[in-house]
Amino acid sequence: MRIDAKGMHFAALNGLIRDSADGEIVIDNVLGQRYIAAGAAGRHIVVRGVPGNALGAYMNGCRVDVYGSAQDAVGDTMNDGVIVVHGSCGDTAGYAMRGGRIFIEGDAGYRVGIHMKEYGSAVPCIVVGGRAGSYLGEYQAGGRIVVLGIGSEGRQCVGDFTSTGMHGGKIYVRGGCIPADLPRQTEVRAVTDKSELAPLVRDFCTCFGFDADALLADDYFMLVPSTAYIYKTLYVNRPD
């Protein structure tokens, strides 16, 4: 099915998608319509233009290709599926994501991957090709975030307050520019074993045509929560 979204309200557009039996849906002239593919499963949706906030929110196993940049809340609380953005995206991409993958070719805004979850084989992953804004991975409880910083070589490619409140999962960052303001509960490690990282970088390169071998030859550091610090020490139980 092919939809011309020009001037269309999001409720009408999303109603068309929901009611369609087609597995392949191409939407042209998208301009700010919110919630495309929200809660959807089992489709391949191609978005041409700039989708509005909450693209693929609660999504449950679609593939969405965006030819353009995306706005805020890409893949909010997404459960499964793949979102590929051929451009940059706004804030809070992958908020509380539970599974699936998000690939952003360019930069991503504030608070990418906050509250990301993980359990057993459900390990959500976000790969950002360019830079990521402040509060990356805040309260992260699981999953993998990769920031490649392509085009920002030699400069810090993650923002302030990265990994604040992180208590699970991993953040991989290419290059050696470790932020100076990392919180107490985060531990920085050099990446020596790239076996987990490599498939993510290769998938990213397949989407956007970068040289995976060259990217993987570089140095990476990794942020993980340190078990030494937990909130327990913050509180004292009062018996009343």
């Binding site: 509250h115 979850k117 359990y119």
Partner: peptide, 19 residues
């Protein structure tokens, strides 16, 4: 399993929804 967070660590849901 239900919350999809690591076992034994304090689960914090901060006051603001950050969106």
């Amino acid at each position: 399993r239900t919350r999809m967070i690591p076992k034994g660590t304090d689960a914090i849901s901060p006051a603001p929804h950050h969106d």
